[in-house]
Structure formats: C-alpha cells, structure tokens
Design a protein around this nucleic acid. Structure first.
Lengths: 153, 153
DNA sequence: TTGTATGGTAAAGTAGCTTGACGATTCTGT
DNA sequence: ACAGAATCGTCAAGCTACTTTACCATACAA
C-alpha cells in the first residue's frame, strides 16, 4: 500500500530532499556565487548563458554551428549572444578562409582576460567547497557526479 | 605565474570539469528523465516549473504569496501558473475565511494523484541512480550535497 | 476613520530563446 | 562542367515564461 499511496511524510520527503532538487540548488548556488564574483570584477553585464557560451569557444576559434550544438541552442541564439560579446569587445568573427560560408569566432585580448578571470573564480569557489567538505569529500563528490553522468546522460 | 596566467590545459579543464557544470548537467539529466516519465503517464503538458510549484503546495493549502517566495518568482507568475493548474483541475483556490484577502491553494483529487505519481517517478529515477552508484555511493552523494548546501546557501 | 500595509489579479512589457525565410558558399552526382 | 542539394550564417517575426506597473479589496494601526 505504501508505494501506491505514499504517506504525507513520504510526500514531504519528496519535496525537500530528492536528488533532482539538490542538483538544482547546488547549481544555482554555484552560479549565483560565480555571477557575484564576476560583478565584483566589473563584468556586471554577464549572464549565465554568456559563461556557457564562452566556455565552448576554443582558443583557436570555433564556428557558430559547433557552438550551437555544444550548448544546445539554435545557431540564431548563438549569433545573438555573439553580437553582444562582439560589441563589448570580447570576441571577433572572421571569415574562415577554408570555408567562406563559416565564421570563426575567436577571443580578443579582453576575451582571454575574461577567460582567465573565469578560471580564477572557479578556483575560488571550489576552494570554498573544499573548506566545507574537505579535499576527500570534494573529490568524492566530483567523482560520484562524473560516474553518474557518464552512465545516465 | 600559473595562477595569474593559467595554461591552455587549465582553461580546458575549467570548461569541462568544474563543479558548476556538473551540477547543471546532473540537474538537466534528472529533469529530462522525470519529464519523460510524466509524459508516459500522460502529463504531457507538465513543464519543470509546474513541478517546482506543485512541490511547494502544502496538503492543507498554501497562499499565493508564500508560494511565490518559496519558489523565488513574483506572485503574478505564481498566479498565472495556478490559472493553468486550476483550469486542468489539479488545484483549487478558495478564500481564506481568516483573511479574506488571501486565497488558499489546495490540491484536488487529481492533484493528489499527480503528487503520488511524482513520488513514484522520483523513486524510479533514484533506483536507476542506485543501480549505477551502489547504495553507498548514492547515499554518499546525497549527504555530500546536503552538507555542501547547508553551508553555502 | 484615515492612512498604510498586505494579498491578489490584470494588463503590458521584456529577455531569451525558437521558427521560418533567405542569401552565400560548397559539395555531389552525372 | 554544372544543376541540384546541402551547409553556414543572419534577419525578422513569433513565442514563452517570466517581470513591472497599476490597481482593487481587505486588514491593520494610530
């Protein structure tokens, strides 16, 4: 009976504790902390999707279609985000000489600086996590997540 | 030098491995799996935010303002979602006799069934995760997440 | 009993996408 | 060699899930 008609207690547990919500809360906490740190460094225009996009641009350049498929949105959405990043001076679009339909997106100097700042911010946040969980706990958490994702994705 | 000017390798690691992205991927995987299972049970209209909202409605009723603050959106947004849930017959709004400004949102019978289905789906997905990580690994993952969130949120 | 706070809704505005349509370039088959 | 199909990117319009602004109804406080 209890599986077909869960008790109020079970429902309460479902609401607060289930892994899906824990993942969401963890992601939000990380993302908000990161965005705050970016703001402190005067990247106040940055939104999460910018970071997702920037993380997928290779140092030697990537085309729009590849970026779109890597981050799971349309080429048009990527193109719009690139307009903003380009107008702010963080990336450039150049014509691919090997395929003149394609645009190669590369970082400007300011873009590389942004990437370095992102790396540092990631390090700072992970250091905060290590302070909470210990080095072992942190590594365990990461390897459990990787193991899980390898299997379920 | 290496901290101020991370190498290409470090940047590559930042892109793929950092905990923020792992949390995001884990949440997406869970959410997509859950939504698929809801679709199989003919809740094809359900979107993630509906689940977030439903999970915050107490069995003995909750008002709109509380729901809004719990899920972190405006009262108007909650009101709009409730319109849809109400039109589909899963929740009801009644006037709070103790405070006639307030609306008490409660589940209908269909709403309680939905809650039970949600509980079962959660159980199914967690069983899949246990199959991958083992019972110990699963419990470790959950307790590490809880410990982390208690400290950083 | 009058001002102020609170609970909720309605309507309009907005951000961040998608879809549809298209031009430019490249590939493919004959 | 070249017609037809595929690929790369962009523009414009549309959509969805919110927010902002404005407001009414009720409750509280001086």
């Amino acid at each position: 009976m209890s599986d077909q008609f869960p008790t109020r207690e079970k429902i309460a547990a479902f609401r607060q504790e289930h892994l899906g919500r824990l993942f969401l809360r963890a992601h939000r906490a990380f993302s908000e902390r990161a965005l705050l740190k970016f703001q402190e460094r005067e990247y106040d225009w940055l939104r999460p999707m910018h970071l997702t996009l920037i993380a997928q641009i290779d140092l030697d350049g990537t085309n729009v279609t590849s970026l779109a498929s890597r981050i799971g949105v349309t080429k048009q959405a990527v193109s719009q985000m690139l307009d903003e990043l380009e107008s702010r001076g963080y990336v450039e679009r150049t014509v691919d000489p090997a395929n003149r339909r394609a645009a190669i997106v590369t970082f400007t100097e300011a873009g590389v600086r942004l990437l370095h700042d992102a790396y540092q911010i990631k390090q700072e946040i992970e250091a905060e996590y290590i302070a909470v969980l210990g080095e072992d706990g942190f590594n365990q958490l990461r390897s459990l997540l990787v193991k899980l994702l390898e299997s379920i994705e």
